[in-house]
Nucleic acid binder design. Sequence first.
RNA 1: GGAGAGAUGGCAGAGUGGUCGAUUGCGGCGGUCUUGAAAACCGUUGACCUGAAAGGGUCCGGGGGUUCGAAUCCCUCUCUCUCCGCCA
Length: 426
Amino acid sequence: MIPLNIIREKTDWVIERLAVKNFKAADTIHAICELDDKRKETQKSMDGKLAEANALAREIGILYKSGKAAEADQMKQQSATLKEEARVMSEQLATLQNELNALHVTLPNLPHESVPIGKSAEDNQIVKEEGGIPELPENAIPHWDLATKYDIISWELGSKVTGAGFPFYKGQGAKLQRALINFFLEEGISAGYGEIQPPLLINEDSGFGTGQLPDKEGQMYHCTVDNLYLIPTAEVPITNIYRDVILRAQDLPIKNIAYSNCFRREAGSYGKDVRGLNRLHQFDKVEIVQIANPEKSYEILEQMVEHVSNLLRKLELPFRILRLCGGDMSFTSALTFDFEVWSAAQKRWLEVSSVSNFESFQANRMKLRFKDENGKTQLAHTLNGSAMALPRIVAALLENNQTDEGIRIPAALQKYTGYSMIVQNR
RNA sequence: GGAGAGAUGGCAGAGUGGUCGAUUGCGGCGGUCUUGAAAACCGUUGACCUGAAAGGGUCCGGGGGUUCGAAUCCCUCUCUCUCCGCCA
């Protein structure tokens, strides 16, 4: 959530900035300000009543002790009145607070000043493009056919046992998955990230903390019996470690990396977008998360972008980096860079990573703070990025590296796969 | 799943109805001493709301109740520990 004091102090500016995300905020913002005024007023008068009641209770105590019970009994009536008044006000206060919150949570994060204006993915800004686009022979085929040809992924078994979007990985395919996971983790650990294995189910508070709830409830698998959600990304459990925590300035930045399965319902997608590995309900991802001092967060965002770039270079995949426009950014992000790899047989770019700075938006929701150099507690910044999501990397590796002899594995990956080529009939 | 015990400030640990937001120890921070450090000694040290400030209010796992007054009593939920059962 955008901190309330910013909404109060820079009201017009907030409305202006949210317009970049194509969000018309004026009515909501003004309603919030009004409710906040009422809230303060009510709180003040309630505090006054409570202060009187407290003073009275103290007096009554003293009177009883000194044996003046009759006098004390008289004062009880007065106290009851005060208490009733305070109770009414506290109910009003709760109502106001609820109304205010309900509006507050509907506001998306403020976009960073560098975010381009735009409505959709077409308005994203290409920051950089790297690596040559490979020329494939005439008989090149897309990854879903390659996967079947080499018997490394079974779509049919997935549909049979679970449903579409839940493939089985087999043999060299399963080993490739494991190799990529290890590769990404080891690269991250070398870059100073601490490895964590999180739970795959999270509770409601955690879903709220990182912003999946209440906004994107339908995107997550929900175990209603226990009211737990399957994680859509390791970002959720890893960031929520620091929910309701006050860190010390010297603890920052905190750098964590986690491999996890990710589960997404992806309601409403169809067609070529979901073919093969392009979009799955369950997939593997290695995620990097940082908790940062606000002064350093954009520097850190750059470092994370560089980290992901290096992974793609080592995998010898052509990629481009996009600066997302206001209309294509997520609800929670202040600035996002997307990474796309070229999938040579499909002849299209596939998103494989998204690196974002959330500034204090998540931190405010989950009360993640730190004590700065002056001993003041303030909200930290949170950042995260995929480093990386496996399926589309696999798609690009398969398609781009297909040869008549088999599928070539990039050198950097071979020590993890234990083989240099995916071949038939193993 | 069954039985019992417990949840207090960064940690440890007092406090069982009345100036308790909370004794004390450790840790942290500042200082004295020292060439420097350690030790010792002195001081300081929770969060949130409101307020220019002084001040006021709220918070002793969460929620509700009893009472003039609750960390302290009652109800309820969650979590932790011990024992039993089950189990990768």
